[in-house]
């Protein structure tokens, strides 16, 4: 098992370097002054010269790439034009907000989706089933930003239950993780965007769980579980749902990609100071080092989550061998 994880981590690191390389060359393929991707054009000429040498900008693309990779290995993604601070620092500041929002959304979606999907299949033909499918599909196909805006209008503007945007009430400052994230104010800000995220995510676990459950319920081992005289609840949870979960985990891993895409929209609408919003801003501000760094980190995040899902799968399904 450990061997398997180590190998998978190795492969993942290789993939990250590969993706970073692609991102690097994509950015360089854009028309315009190549130095502009690394060095802020508004700088004083002397300072620029120092940086041009630092990044090998007077050399070939290959030289620049070598510098880029060397820096990457040291987790150095350059300096942001806009903030004038290391990109890495800005990103690590933003990541917790994104992860918390995304994970809360995922927990809501998977919690409700998995149980709901299992129940829908168990009580096949019940009104609940078609209602559940319809609602899930509405929230999946409705534009996320629209749902987000509507929820803001309803719950923040009209009902005034939740704050409309941001992650804390203005004036509140916090430095440590605990001060920023572990308080009621943050929780209040979190509810609305995470519920919207959850609604957007829910179709995947709900529908896959339902289908996979229906499939599992017709398996011979379910009949066997009945023939053994197990109680219905035990059959539902220990046998049917347990096995139906496997494809949901796989689908969840594949779904992460689009989930991150959705986060960019949600963070923008809710002014949520996460990585997604930072990317959008970096692009509009022509803050290339930050945009490039954010892309690299985002794709790395995705790969890490994929790996987690794979490992989870291997733990859940004894038929997977860790070779």
């Amino acid at each position: 098992m450990l061997n398997y994880i180590a190998r998978r981590v190795g492969i993942m690191l290789l993939m990250i370097i590969l993706v970073s390389t692609m991102i690097f060359f994509l950015f360089r393929a854009m028309p315009g002054d190549p130095t502009a991707f690394v060095v802020d054009p508004s700088m004083a000429p002397e300072a620029r010269q120092v940086l041009i040498e630092r990044y090998g900008l007077d050399g070939s693309l290959w030289d620049q790439y070598k510098v880029f990779i060397k820096d990457l290995v040291k987790f150095d993604l350059g300096n942001s034009f806009f903030y004038g601070r290391p990109v890495m620092k800005i990103i690590t500041d933003r990541i917790p907000a994104t992860l918390i929002l995304m994970l809360t959304g995922m927990i809501i979606a998977y919690g409700i989706g998995v149980f709901g999907g299992a129940l829908m299949a168990w009580k096949r033909g019940h009104k609940l089933e078609s209602a559940g499918i319809t609602i899930a599909l509405i929230f999946r196909s409705a534009p996320t930003f629209w749902v987000a805006l509507m929820s803001i209008i309803l719950f923040s503007v009209n009902l005034k239950w939740f704050p409309a945007q941001g992650m804390r009430t203005s004036g509140y400052t916090g430095e440590t993780f605990k001060e920023i994230f572990m308080n009621l104010d943050f929780l209040k800000h979190l509810i609305l965007p995470s519920v919207v995220a959850g609604l957007y995510f829910i179709a995947t676990p709900l529908l896959i769980m339902r289908n996979s459950m229906l499939e599992v319920l017709s398996e011979d081992y379910i009949e066997m579980a009945r023939a053994k005289g197990l109680r219905e609840n035990r059959i539902l949870y220990k046998h049917a749902a347990r096995n139906a979960l496997l494809p949901v985990v796989t689908a969840g891993a594949l779904f992460l990609g689009s989930a991150i895409g959705g986060m960019v929209l949600l963070e923008t609408v809710f002014s949520w100071p996460g990585l997604g919003r930072e990317i959008v801003q970096a692009v509009t501000r022509h803050d290339y080092p930050l945009a490039q760094g954010a892309f690299i980190i985002m794709s790395s995040l995705m790969m890490i989550m994929n790996l987690v899902a794979d490992i989870l799968y291997a733990v859940l399904d004894p038929r997977i061998s860790y070779r």
């Binding site: 011979d220 081992y221 009949e223 066997m224 023939a227 053994k228 005289g229 347990r242 399904d317």
Partner: peptide, 27 residues
């Protein structure tokens, strides 16, 4: 009723089913 039937199964009446090959839960 269901609970009475449940108590009969395996304990009183046991089945070796036609599809015994797939009758074991793989996990």
């Amino acid at each position: 009723n269901k609970e009475e039937i449940r108590k009969l199964r395996l304990n009183e009446i046991a089945m070796i089913s036609q599809s015994a090959m797939n009758s074991l839960n793989p996990v």
